[in-house]
Design a protein around this nucleic acid. Structure first.
Lengths: 204, 204
DNA sequence: TTAAATTCTCGACCATGGTCGACTTTTTAT
DNA sequence: ATAAAAAGTCGACCATGGTCGAGAATTTAA
C-alpha cells in the first residue's frame, strides 16, 4: 500500500497553506505566529518546519496564489488596443494597489522578491519568472506593432521597466510619493524618459 | 550644574555606536545580539532601546559612517574627464562591491534603504538624500557638458539611473547574474538603453 | 540644603521563530 | 507476518529582539 505517505503529505501541506491563507488574510503576516498557524492547521510546530524552511517561505507560497488575481484583474481592464505604456501603467498600478493594500504585507513581499535570502531564492525566482513571461509577452507584441525597438533584448527591456516600477514603489515607501496618483504620475514620467531616452536631441 | 545629563547621553550614544561598529564589523549584524552589544557598550539592554527604536536602526546609524568611504573611494578613481556613463558605472560598481562584500550585510542595508519600515524611514531618507545630492550634482555637470537632455527633472533622472542599478543588484541576489562582471555588463547595457531610449528610430 | 519632580538605566521578563531528538507511522526485506 | 529501516510528527526547549516598571541619577523649586 505504497502512496499513503504521499497522500498524507499532500493533505498536510494543503492544510498548512489553507490555514496560512486564512490567518495571514485575517490578521496579517506579522501578527500570525507559527504556533497559531500550527494549531489552526492541526499539526505540530515542527511539522511546519519540515514542509517550509522558514516563515517567509510560507508567505511566498501564500503569495503565489494571490498574484494570479492581479494578472487576471489587469488583463481584464486593458483593451487589446492599448499602447505599451498604457498596458505597463495598468499592470504596475494594479500591482501597486494590490501590494500596498496592506503596507506591511507589501514591504515583506517586495523585500523577499527583490533581495531574497538564500533560503527563499528558489521560490522568489519562480514567482519572478511568471512575471517576466507576462511582461515580455507584452513587450514582444509592442515590438511587432512597432512601438518598441527591435534591436533590444526583451529581458533587459522588461528589467528596465520593472526597475522604474520598483523605484516608484520605493519612493512611496520612503514617503517621497504620498498618494497613488503621485506614484502614477512619477511612473508615467519615468516610462516616458525610458522610451524617449535621456540623450540631448542632437546626440542620438 | 545643568548639562551633566546631556554630556552623559552623548557619551552613552557614542559607546553604543562604537561597540556596534566593532561587533558588526567583526561578527556581522545578524550574529551580534543586542545583549552582547549592550555588554560591549557597558550599558543595560533597556538603555540601548532608549537610544534606538530597533536593532536595524542601529545598523543604519552604523552604515552612515561607512558609506562615506564609498564616495571617497569612487571620487578618487574617476577622472574629471570621464563621461556620465563612466562616472555612473564607477559609482554603482563601487557601491556594489562594497555592499555585496558581505552578502547578508548588503541585503539588509538594501532592504532597509529601499523598502524601509515606518520606524527607520527617517534615517533611510537621510542616507538617501546624501546619495541623491551626490548623484544629481554628477548629472547636472553632465547636463552642462551637453551629455544629458536639459528638459528633464534631475531628480527623476537620478531615480531612473538608480533604478537600473537596483535591478542589477537584485538580479545578482536572485542569482540571475553571477559575477561582478555580469553585473557590470548588464548595468552598462541598461544605462545605454536609458540614454538612447526604447522607441524605434523613426518614432522619436 | 532638601525634597519633589523628572529623566534615565537596568535586567528580569515576554513572545516568537526556529531546533532537536524522542516517538509514531509507513515502507521494505525476508 | 514480522522486524528492521526510513520517513514523518511532535512539542519541550533555546536564543533573541523587544517591553516594562522599579529604582538610581539629575534637575528644579523652595
Amino acid at each position: 500500500m505504497a502512496g499513503v505517505r504521499e497522500e498524507k503529505k499532500r493533505k498536510t501541506r494543503q492544510a498548512i497553506l489553507q490555514a496560512a491563507v486564512r490567518l495571514f488574510g485575517d490578521h496579517g503576516y506579522e501578527r500570525t505566529s507559527i504556533a497559531a498557524l500550527a494549531r489552526a492547521a492541526g499539526v505540530g510546530k515542527g511539522t511546519i518546519y519540515s514542509y517550509f524552511q522558514t516563515k517567509s517561505e510560507i508567505f511566498l507560497a501564500f503569495c503565489e496564489d494571490e498574484l494570479d488575481h492581479v494578472y487576471a484583474e489587469v488583463a481584464k481592464k486593458t483593451g487589446a488596443d492599448a499602447t505599451l505604456t498604457e498596458q505597463l501603467m495598468a499592470l504596475f498600478l494594479g500591482e501597486f494597489r494590490y501590494v500596498t493594500r496592506h503596507k506591511d504585507f507589501g514591504r515583506l513581499l517586495l523585500r523577499e522578491m527583490i533581495f531574497p535570502k538564500e533560503l527563499t531564492v528558489e521560490r522568489s525566482r519562480d514567482l519572478d519568472n511568471r512575471y517576466i513571461d507576462y511582461l515580455s509577452a507584452m513587450c514582444r507584441k509592442a515590438q511587432q506593432r512597432g512601438e518598441l525597438r527591435r534591436d533590444v533584448d526583451l529581458l533587459f527591456v522588461c528589467g528596465h521597466f520593472y526597475a522604474l516600477y520598483l523605484i516608484a514603489v520605493s519612493a512611496w515607501y520612503m514617503g517621497r510619493l504620498q498618494t497613488e496618483d503621485d506614484v502614477a504620475q512619477a511612473l508615467q514620467l519615468l516610462l516616458q524618459q525610458s522610451m524617449e531616452g535621456l540623450l540631448p536631441a542632437g546626440k542620438k
